[in-house]
Design a protein around this nucleic acid. Sequence first.
DNA 1: ATACCGGATACTGCATGCAGAAAATTTCGT
DNA 2: ACGAAATTTTCTGCATGCAGTATCCGGTAT
Lengths: 221, 221
Amino acid sequence: MARAARVVVQVERLRDQVYQLIREGLKSGELKPGQRLVEVELAERYGVSRTPVREALFQLTRGGFLDSTERGYSVPIYSEKDVIYRLEVKRLLIPAVTGHVARTATALQIKRLTKLHEAEKAAHAAGNVEKFVEANHEFRTETHLICENKLLSRCLIMMEDQFETARSRIHQLEVNRRLSIDHNGRLLAAIAAHDPAAAVAEERAFLDFLDGYYAEHAPVG
Amino acid sequence: MARAARVVVQVERLRDQVYQLIREGLKSGELKPGQRLVEVELAERYGVSRTPVREALFQLTRGGFLDSTERGYSVPIYSEKDVIYRLEVKRLLIPAVTGHVARTATALQIKRLTKLHEAEKAAHAAGNVEKFVEANHEFRTETHLICENKLLSRCLIMMEDQFETARSRIHQLEVNRRLSIDHNGRLLAAIAAHDPAAAVAEERAFLDFLDGYYAEHAPVG
DNA sequence: ATACCGGATACTGCATGCAGAAAATTTCGT
DNA sequence: ACGAAATTTTCTGCATGCAGTATCCGGTAT
């Protein structure tokens, strides 16, 4: 087994694979909030030694995906407040980022965004929720990455990553998937037209909508 | 050595110590921008095995303190733009954070801030630049940590940490240390008075000053 | 019955060995 | 002497062993 793994590693390190596997576990709900994570357990489950698991674990901790108690790690429990807080940060950063992006996006970058947008539409049409969530997340990340100010990008991406789980649940509802697609479509159009004002307005409108949404529906865990 | 270290570890893990040591090396300029970092070298230098060094290295990478090439790690080279970009993010986040802090700071927290402020003043009076930089950084971090919205805190602290090196250089000049102390003094007063408007105004004014400063002086590396 | 103490267990942190890949250096052919 | 091929060196990633500590459990004393 060690042998076979070794070969794959050249493509992607085991610790990165484990990192992804745990994140997927968090997203899918296989790893439940509050649950404790033990090195050996995970090592056995994924068929690797403790080392890459260890390394993945505290990378995840540092990224805010896991809580690290004095001894060991556990799946964090998000409160309603966290969801609200995230919206606050987005509200602060989004206008600046979106402005940058709409101003500076190259044809190639716009093409890539278009492709991702098509992918999420296709996944939705095909009823493949998981694939939709994936593409939707990528679209978001890719958009933020266009921003020249990488510090801004990193702040936003950091947050969005942490809320992948929450968004994954929101997107279980068909209506929310459709709303997200429409939003992304309008956003993409504004970016492609190099119209910062329109892009920022679209983002603001969507944040307002989310505010109202969370006021009515209980925020997801 | 392993024995002795083991005892200390209970207090602080070796990987965390190494993490700090490398960050200090970055701050002091002992580790120069562009320089490559090799596991065994650092392990020997710090008298530990490769494991904690490894672990510290990619924690630093994930935090943005190091660049990770395909093979190995290196000290990142900051551009002038990064300094400007940092100001942009601060300008977006600072008002929200400072508002929160001024509104919600407890007596205990204010006391702690006061203590740190006294410490930086004392260090400056004693001409101990290194100690000043330390206390100054702590004051800043502690201030941001008061914010209820931990996502906001984390974004800001992440950035401030990364610019410790730059600030350390800025603070080599006596006049800049004095300006920083004055700024912190006025900020602290506004927070202690629970006057969000004044606190935010003070931050804004200081950011404006920095803008002007960087326009004249070449931004530090 | 409960509280306290001692041993077993579980789990983490660190050291080290090994293998594989990339870089550097040497050797060989022309 | 120059370029190509081969070998050596360097360095990383992973597995594993060991040691130390916290936790849990059962036994004993009050």
